[in-house]
């Protein structure tokens, strides 16, 4: 039985290749309960593949993936369905089902995840609560095509958190959004992390997104984000930088900012 110290997500020398082309090379890290990992990298560096490997949507060509203390690398699709019930995920474009309205999209994991078995009469209240969390309580009967890009991401977050999963994965949640909407989305991710103390992995190419997650905490009493006492320390946030599938950095924000590596330092804005 995994204890509190057991990593919720661990990669041990994970490699992945499409045909002969390597996309991930020997990536290793461990993420304990309540920790946050920001994965930075340029386009094509393997960020999304890393996330899909963590979800079992892609199987590593080498190495091991450990989730909630169990080695699931060679698990069957059915075993993965049980594991995925404990993980919330936001895809790059939201990944909403365009033939379902917002309410059915958010209700989808409640009705379909094998470990949930949510009674039908509890589905709507949970959907409404989840949509209220992302300030979209009025969009129940709208279809994804009727929503803006930012609203689609927020519905995607609502769907990811509706089952209260222990581990949250976000794939480029701010890609293609204006800075104001992007900050709203990252604030929601921070809120989702801090209200439930969820372990969080966020893939992004924007250092600012990671900076918010590392330096701010959601203050339930004030109803907004507040700086952490030392501006970065207590959110247990680490940064991982990928270059062409290779892990070139893993450490805290301070270490990232101090890095002399020419590739790594490109992600940190210098004033």
């Amino acid at each position: 039985m995994p204890d509190a110290q057991t990593p919720q997500l661990a990669f041990h020398n994970v490699s992945f290749a499409f045909d002969e082309t390597p996309v991930l090379r020997n990536v290793s890290f461990e993420l304990s309960s309540g920790e946050t990992l920001i994965v930075l990298g340029a386009a094509g560096s393997g960020k999304t593949v890393l996330l899909k490997t963590a979800l079992g949507l892609l199987r590593p060509t080498q190495g091991r993936v450990v989730l909630f203390g169990a080695d699931v690398t060679a698990g069957s699709e059915r075993e993965w369905f049980d594991i995925r019930s404990r993980i919330g995920v936001l895809f790059q474009e939201g990944g909403l089902f365009d033939s379902l309205d917002v309410a059915d999209n958010v209700a989808y994991p409640l009705r379909n995840q094998p470990l949930r078995q949510c009674p039908e009469e509890q589905v709507l209240p949970k959907v409404e609560e989840s949509l209220k969390f992302v300030d979209l309580g009025h969009t129940l009967d709208k279809y994804p095509s009727e929503l803006s890009g930012g609203m689609r991401r927020r519905v995607g977050i609502a769907r990811a958190i509706v089952t209260q999963p222990e581990l949250m994965l976000y794939d480029s949640p701010t890609a293609g959004l204006d800075p104001i909407t992007a900050n709203i989305i990252v604030a929601l991710i921070t809120k989702g992390r801090d209200v439930r103390n969820a372990t969080t992995v966020m893939v992004t190419h924007r250092f600012q997104d990671g900076e918010i997650l590392a330096g701010f905490r959601y203050d339930t009493a004030a109803g907004g984000l507040g700086l952490t006492p030392d501006h970065r320390g207590d959110t247990q946030t680490r940064f991982l930088v990928l270059r062409e599938g290779e892990m070139v950095f893993l450490g805290t924000q301070a270490e990232l900012e101090a890095s002399q590596d020419s590739y790594v330092s490109k992600f940190v804005p210098h004033t």
Binding site: K52, R84, G95, P109, Q113, P114
Partner: peptide, 17 residues
């Protein structure tokens, strides 16, 4: 269309084969 907009991945991630 579902494949290229990640709806099939989302389906697998949300418990449906």
């Amino acid at each position: 269309s579902m494949k290229v907009t990640e709806q099939i991945d989302a389906m697998r991630a949300l418990g449906t084969d």
